[in-house]
């Protein structure tokens, strides 16, 4: 990394995890999204994986792995899921994402 010109480094993508580190959440220990993963195996496109802006959905072989902690509550996953495998609620008690500069 040190051998790289500063210009080069600046023009590199920031990893999603690092991008998300700039956000503030108050994560509820109780997930606000439930995924019936049994329905994911046969899902052809798995659109949630590429369309969830915060990468909450990842694949492992034919399976979809899911974590709700980085969710910004946009609701896209529920809309794009062809299998209706997602039960989506808003986090309660003011928890979840806390936008400050958007």
């Amino acid at each position: 990394m040190s051998s790289q010109a500063p210009e080069e480094r600046k023009r590199r993508k920031i990893r999603l995890e690092d991008l998300l580190n700039n956000n503030i959440w108050d994560v509820d220990p109780r997930p606000h999204i439930k995924l019936d993963t049994s329905k994911c195996r046969d899902c052809n496109y798995k659109p949630c994986v590429l369309l969830c802006p915060t990468g909450c959905y990842t694949t492992h072989g034919d399976d979809v792995l899911f974590s709700y902690e980085g969710c910004v509550e946009c609701g896209t996953c529920r809309v794009v899921c062809p299998e209706e495998a997602i039960t989506w609620e808003y986090p309660r008690s003011g928890r979840g994402i806390h936008f400050r500069f958007s």
Binding site: L20, N21, N22, I24, W25, D26, H98
Partner: peptide, 11 residues
């Protein structure tokens, strides 16, 4: 109780 900055991800 204490009201504290939410430092779960501190940059």
């Amino acid at each position: 109780i204490k009201y504290v900055p939410n430092t779960t991800n501190v940059n």
